[in-house]
Design a protein around this nucleic acid. Structure first.
Lengths: 335, 335
DNA sequence: GTGAAAGCGCTAACAA
DNA sequence: TTGTTAGCGCTTTCAC
């Protein structure tokens, strides 16, 4: 790595402006309680020298960093293909920016990464962490909690037993699922199937439970395990049609899988919603509005979830406690 | 934000182990030149106290951070939808991890963000920056250069006039484009069209020049401006078919646009490659292998580009100078 | 309102 | 081999 040019220090600015370091510090941090002419002199010196405060030195004394880490435990490629995550990140980014905090995205792929991220967080680079704990067996949350910095989780962590004081933001997955299934039942459907998400994620488990709340324990016949991808939705739909050819409604645990299911149904000559009603989850516009027919689905405000996570972490909302957001049914043509 | 528990310091560890701070520091940093029993005692104390070095303090003296920023000047949503970027990031991530550096992803959306990112970089949080300077008028590169930290650009920056000592990693876009067009000509095609990328990016401009190197200045008739998206490819293809119905070959500046063009050609009843040969650029497998027919294209090793950027920045490769990677023609069915 | 001085937690000479 | 000491650049009392 090439050499970094030595940067001017507070000292240098002070000398140039003919004042003390303390005064320069005051001006740099807002200038309160410093008389105008001095402020002006210092400002000029800062400008001329191209002075930028050394954050390491500042953090050492203030113990603040004005930076928040977003930790993602997925392989990058998956994260970067997922519009869900992009939306959430956008919400986070907006909120942090509004409070002049820098977003620092930490990606982890393997075991080694976990340790490094743990060190990074514990090492005091950031004031807090937003963590997406997507899988039940993820070791990362544990590490992060031990790092001892304020943390808000995206989605209910699988290991949160309720008693521990974890703060998370989640949608009402179970309630939303109930609404979805009730809607199908309200349409007069009796053979209602469910395509689950990846069951090592709480959102998938919760939606499955919501399904069972309404339908009872249907046995395995009407439940097919998916993985939140369109391909998984296709596979599950084929499975369902084989196991139960007279199925007349499907609740898919997200829109992507619903779109896959739709494709299979069309391919097999079933009309939607006449023969089979289909309902999704998410209301991801790029998906739900583009399918044929457009998808009836359960809407969650993903960007708002991100914003809320950031707000909870920054303490903008007062007391930090977990939030579960309501979902709403969005009716389009598929159910 | 809730309070962070006060963390134990070197001092505390030293006291507990009954040694000096210097000894603890040595042990924490590898333990060279400290006798075994002492090392053991210190290790235990570190363990018991849960000591983690304060990075701010360390950086203040070492002037190192073991962290590299990746700066992306795109709105997140675009970045997160682009497999190209995901691949490059993966290469970067792997290389940085291998050298025990933390990857810090900095996203910028607007003007305000630029200033903040500039401050972050200049403020000494990272040892260097990898910058994707995707558009010609991007103000970010300027800011970053002023921050005075080592920087490697992804793709040739538009403003690099050659004389300035910017370091970048790029593909041989012009040469690759020439190969693509020559291949089409070699197939006996005479009415060869080009769908350009967004012309505020050097990669698009370079590929257009490569096209012209072979075809001469065809005039505007056989060149349609696209934007690197599938939709843009569709629009451009329609335009070309209208302006020049007897077109018999198309070179699209990337695979995504080629896939859009393919769709339009099929829709209009042109057979590929019999009536119209199509060639893309990138060899993005998720696209090129999935199209119908599979896409002949110019391959660039995107992940390798990322890895190389990181290597140049870290100085692993010795002298840091720009690198232009060769491309190769990958023949499939479309041309 | 301004400056002097202490000290944040750590590393790196230098001494012992 | 180990300890002592002097800062790294900044903020923040506390005097003036």
């Amino acid at each position: 790595m090439t050499e970094t040019a030595p940067r001017p220090t507070l000292e240098a600015v002070a000398e140039r402006a003919g004042v003390s370091r303390a005064t320069v510090s005051r001006v740099v941090n807002g200038g309160d309680g410093v008389r105008e002419p001095l402020v002006e002199r210092v400002r000029r010196a800062v400008e001329e020298l191209g002075y930028v405060p050394n954050q390491a030195a500042r953090s050492l004394v203030t113990r603040r960093h004005d930076a928040i880490a977003v930790v993602v435990a997925e392989p990058e490629t998956r994260v970067f293909a997922d519009p869900f995550f992009a939306l959430q990140l956008r919400g986070i980014s907006k909120e942090l920016t509004a409070h002049d905090n820098q977003l620092v995205l930490l990606l982890t792929e393997g075991r080694d990464d976990h340790a490094r991220v743990g060190r990074y967080l514990a090492g005091g680079h950031v004031d807090g962490a937003l963590v997406f704990s997507l899988h039940l067996d993820d070791p990362l949350p544990e590490l992060i909690q031990r790092a001892g910095i304020p943390t808000v989780f995206g989605g209910r962590p699988g290991w949160s037993d309720g008693s521990r004081d974890v703060v998370f933001v989640d949608s009402d997955n179970r309630g939303g699922a109930r609404d979805a299934v009730r809607h199908l039942v309200g349409l007069g459907r009796t053979r209602v199937a469910h395509i689950t998400g990846a069951l090592d994620q709480t959102s998938a488990v919760d939606r499955l439970e919501g399904f069972r709340d309404v339908m009872g324990d249907t046995g395995p016949g009407l439940v097919a395990e998916g993985d939140f991808t369109p391909g998984g939705g296709e596979r599950a739909m084929r499975e369902l049609l084989e196991r139960c050819p007279d199925v007349d409604a499907v609740f898919a645990a997200n829109d992507l899988m619903a779109s896959g299911a739709l494709r299979v149904l069309r391919e097999q000559g079933r009309r939607v919603p006449d023969d089979v009603a289909v309902i999704g989850f998410d209301d991801m516009l790029t998906v739900a509005e583009q399918t044929d027919p457009p998808l009836t689905t359960i809407r969650q405000d993903i960007e708002e979830m991100g914003r809320l996570m950031a707000r909870l972490l920054l303490g903008t909302d007062g007391a930090a406690s977990s939030v579960v957001l309501r979902t709403t049914l969005v009716r389009r043509a598929s159910a």
